[in-house]
């Protein structure tokens, strides 16, 4: 479904990402793990059209989308849950969700709103609350629900467990499991390696802007050198 090959992205003189290649097949949950500063967020930003890669290629369902704008990419079927959630804090929960479904017809949007209310009971209770008043866990659920509103073929999440208390981290990974059971295609960037590898079909390990390992979740979990890769070594 998604093919990334030889992607390099720079911030000014800094190569935040060097020659990254990965693929995500339909129905897969793929994890992208690595320490802070490894280039994970840069990679997602480059795929989603927020950053312009200096070289390399991104194809989505066989179409070259390397230079596409974020709004065009969303229309072609990929949605990103950005790092730090970036929900619209001045708007209500419902309005946040509506914006998520802005590209769809009114009827489809109402349909999806109902689905989200069922999928995320916490949000249903705060439907008309300004999103700025949500707790960290609620806000994360809203950010994921907002992305699902566009009925994406590929859902990308950037550090969904960041800054959450352990119990909420559980909640986020339960949600990923649930979405996987629904047959959705998901690409997740995470720092919480153990949990991510348990949840993913396959995973890539990124360090200092380069891929250093790739495999199924269980394979990587058994790699004894993983701890070193993470904390440096």
């Amino acid at each position: 479904m998604l093919e990334v090959s030889g992607l390099t992205t720079k911030y000014g003189a800094i190569s935040a990402l060097r020659d990254a290649s990965l693929s995500v097949g339909a129905g897969e949950v793929v994890g992208l793990i690595g320490p802070n500063g490894a280039g994970k967020t840069t990679l997602l930003g480059s795929i989603a059209g927020l950053l312009e890669p200096s070289s390399g290629k991104v194809t989505f369902e066989g179409v070259d989308v390397t230079k596409a704008s974020p709004e065009a990419l969303l229309r072609s079927g990929m949605a990103l849950v950005p790092e730090h959630r970036r929900i619209f804090v001045d708007m209500t929960v419902e309005e946040n969700l509506k914006i998520g479904g802005i590209t769809r017809s009114g009827a489809e949007r109402s349909e999806s709103l109902k689905e989200m209310a069922e999928l995320f009971p916490v949000l249903r209770d705060k439907w008309d609350t300004a999103a700025g008043f949500l707790s960290g866990g609620e806000a994360q659920q809203l950010a994921i629900a907002r992305a699902l509103m566009s009925k994406p073929k590929l859902l990308m999440m950037d550090e969904p467990s960041l800054g959450l208390a352990p119990i909420l981290v559980d909640l986020v990974f339960d949600l990923i499991d649930q979405l996987r059971a629904d047959g959705r295609t998901i690409l997740v960037v995470e720092q919480n390696a153990t949990r991510m590898l348990q949840a993913a079909d396959r995973a890539y390990v990124l360090r200092s802007g380069e891929f250093v390992a790739e495999g199924t979740g269980t394979e990587l979990l058994e790699r004894s050198d993983l701890f070193d890769t993470f904390v440096g070594g």
Partner: peptide, 10 residues
């Protein structure tokens, strides 16, 4: 320290 780094499951 290991726990803090690799996630609570470790």
């Amino acid at each position: 320290v290991q726990a803090a780094y690799l996630g609570s499951a470790a």
